[in-house]
Design a protein around this nucleic acid. Structure first.
Lengths: 187, 187
DNA sequence: GTCTATAGCTAGATAGAC
DNA sequence: GTCTATCTAGCTATAGAC
């Protein structure tokens, strides 16, 4: 067994960055090879199913990130709800580089992506909503209210990333994070 | 002068649909030709600059739509602010087919699109914000408040379209339109 | 496990008949 | 103004050396 040149995490981070920047169709295998530090043919060794497999691996990588940085935080009953909220907002800001980079949910849902990854995208969105609803319940809101706030939170994140990208200004994203905080802490 | 097989409006509607569905990179010239009713070479006759020109024409087509269906409505002082609001929400719901179709702002900002159309996308977003801010002022809100509500409105539209697309369910979009109404009419 | 080289195809774009 | 036919460059994917 010859050693891997690039470890899985570095590899997936590079691939994720390219998909986020260029979208699923816009990212060519040459782009993916360049950003990952491997050659095209080596990518096929790591991901035998080709481009679709790479996309799935990146989506799965994001689910793992979410599990560790969102779900686990919200389920950590050792922290008060407002501490959990500020932690996940910090983590969200970090993964999106303060609003400077696009969401994979958007990047992977254009072109062939929606067709190829429809189930995974639906699942991923469901995790967001289910987890955020739990946070609302822990804040003391009723089920329906908590569900509404969860949806508003997800919509604010996705929408503000697009508007930030189009205006070439991160202010909408930082504004949205502040509004999300008020959504749960304002009476 | 030989007559046009397809008039400009039908042509641009078909092209817009394909870009919205597949994204800028995902839409091939064959796709664009099929959806417009013309052959590839005929598209080059109508748009000598090729794919980029088609993209610009579609973005311009949307600006014209916005001018007629958003800007003109909000500037129509014969209507009360709440009448103007409900009219533009109806128009927004209509252009996005009740949330079933993606926003061009998102579709055109992925891949090469952001680079090619960065200025146009920024301009288009600016029109939304400027116009919606005027609506807020006419409702009697202060400048800063009106600007915040305009941003929230744009973010809700964009974000809810993505979430609707990913969940394969138009509920987030219709929910967002209701929330936008409350944003202006709730005290 | 990674690489160079290349196959087979489709992309965007053009030439020229009608 | 629209079409068929075609060009070249780039794409995804594979073969086979190391």
């Amino acid at each position: 067994m010859r050693p891997q040149k690039i470890d899985d995490i570095k590899l997936l981070e590079g691939l994720m960055t390219t998909f986020r920047t260029k979208g699923y169709n816009g990212a060519s295998l040459n782009d993916l090879a360049n950003s990952s530090g491997l050659q095209k043919a080596s990518l096929y060794h790591r991901f035998p199913g080709g481009k679709k497999d790479i996309g799935l691996a990146v989506l799965n990588f994001i689910e793992v990130w979410k599990e560790q940085n969102i779900v686990a935080v919200i389920n950590n009953k050792d922290l008060k709800p407002d501490e959990r909220l500020s932690t996940i907002l910090k983590n969200i800001s970090s993964i999106y580089e303060n609003g400077e980079c696009s969401c994979v949910m958007k990047a992977m849902s254009m072109g062939d992506g929606l067709e190829l990854f429809g189930d995974e995208l639906k699942f991923g969105a469901g995790i967001w909503l289910k987890t955020l609803t739990q946070l609302g319940l822990d804040f003391g809101f009723e089920q329906k209210i908590a569900e509404g706030k969860a949806m508003q939170t997800l919509v604010k994140i996705q929408g503000s990333l697009i508007v930030s990208k189009n205006l070439n200004n991160t202010q909408p994203f930082t504004m949205a994070l502040n509004e999300i905080e008020l959504l749960y802490t304002n009476i």
